[in-house]
C-alpha cells in the first residue's frame, strides 16, 4: 500500500488506510506535538486524537495536495491548543540584545566540540520550555518541519506578514531565553 491508496481506503471507510497513515506519520507527528507541548504524554494524546479525527476529516482532504503538511497542520494546532490549556507551561516576556544571539549562532560552523553542541541543545530545550505554544509552533514549522515562509502562508492560510511577524516574535523570544540560559 502507498500513501495515496491509504488515503483512498480511509475515504472509503477502510480502517487499514488509517493504520498505514499512523505507522507512516506517527513518529514525526509525535515529535512535532512533543516539541510544542513539551509533555510527551500530552503529545501522545494529541496525536492519537488527530489520527482518530482523520476518519472523518479525510473526506475534506484534497488529494491533489500532499498529505503530510495537511495532517501536520492539524497536529500543530491540536498541540498548540493542548499546550495552551495545560497549566504546566510558564511563559515570561522579556526582550534582550540581539548581539548575543547573533554571536551564538554565528560561530555555529566553527570547530565546536560535541559537548558544545549538546550544551546548545540543552539551552534550546530550556528556552523552548519557556516559549508560548504558538511561538514553539512556528519554530517547529519553520525549523523542524522545514516549511518555507511561503509554504507556511499557503498551508496556514495566513498572510505573509503575519507569518513573518510570528516568526520574528518567536525568534526574538528564543534569543532572549537563550541569552538568559547562557548567563546562568
Amino acid at each position: 500500500m502507498d500513501e495515496q491508496t491509504a488515503v483512498q481506503r480511509l475515504k472509503a471507510g477502510d480502517i487499514s488506510g488509517l493504520e498505514f497513515l499512523v505507522l507512516h506519520y506517527q513518529v514525526k507527528a509525535l515529535r512535532v506535538a512533543n516539541l510544542i507541548t513539551r509533555d510527551l504524554s500530552l503529545a501522545e494524546d494529541v496525536v492519537q486524537d488527530c489520527f482518530l479525527r482523520l476518519i472523518r476529516s479525510i473526506q475534506n482532504f484534497d488529494h491533489h495536495r500532499p498529505f503530510e503538511p495537511w495532517f501536520m497542520r492539524s497536529v500543530i494546532h491540536a498541540a498548540m491548543k493542548a499546550a495552551q490549556q495545560s497549566s504546566r507551561n510558564i511563559y515570561t516576556e522579556s526582550e534582550t540584545d540581539e548581539t548575543w544571539f547573533e554571536n551564538l549562532f554565528g560561530h555555529g560552523q566553527s570547530a565546536e566540540a560535541e559537548v558544545e553542541a549538546l550544551e546548545f541543545q540543552q539551552q534550546v530545550l530550556d528556552a523552548l520550555q519557556k516559549l508560548s505554544p504558538r511561538q514553539r509552533a512556528v519554530l517547529v514549522q519553520r525549523y523542524f518541519l522545514g516549511w518555507s515562509e511561503k509554504e507556511m502562508v499557503v498551508d496556514l492560510g495566513i498572510a505573509p506578514g503575519t507569518v513573518k511577524w510570528l516568526l520574528n516574535t518567536a525568534r526574538a523570544r528564543l534569543r532572549a531565553l537563550l541569552e538568559k540560559g547562557a548567563q546562568r
Binding site: 488509517l18 493504520e19 499512523v22 505507522l23 506517527q26 513518529v27 509525535l30 515529535r31 512535532v32 512533543n34 516539541l35 510527551l40 503529545a43 501522545e44 496525536v47 492519537q48 489520527f51 482518530l52 544571539f101 547573533e102 551564538l104 549562532f105 554565528g106 555555529g108 560552523q109 553542541a117 546548545f120 541543545q121 534550546v124 530545550l125 523552548l128 519554530l139 517547529v140 525549523y143 523542524f144 522545514g146 528564543l174
Partner: peptide, 28 residues
C-alpha cells in the same frame, strides 16, 4: 547558518525524546 544550527538542535531534541520505534497504533 544559525537557522541550520537551530534546526539541527530541534531535530536532535525530537529524536532524543521520541524514539524512532514508537508505535501508538495499538492505542488508536
Amino acid at each position: 547558518t544559525r537557522d541550520e544550527r537551530l534546526k539541527t538542535a530541534l531535530q536532535a531534541i525530537a529524536r532524543r525524546e521520541v524514539a524512532e520505534t514508537t508505535n501508538i497504533w495499538p492505542q488508536i
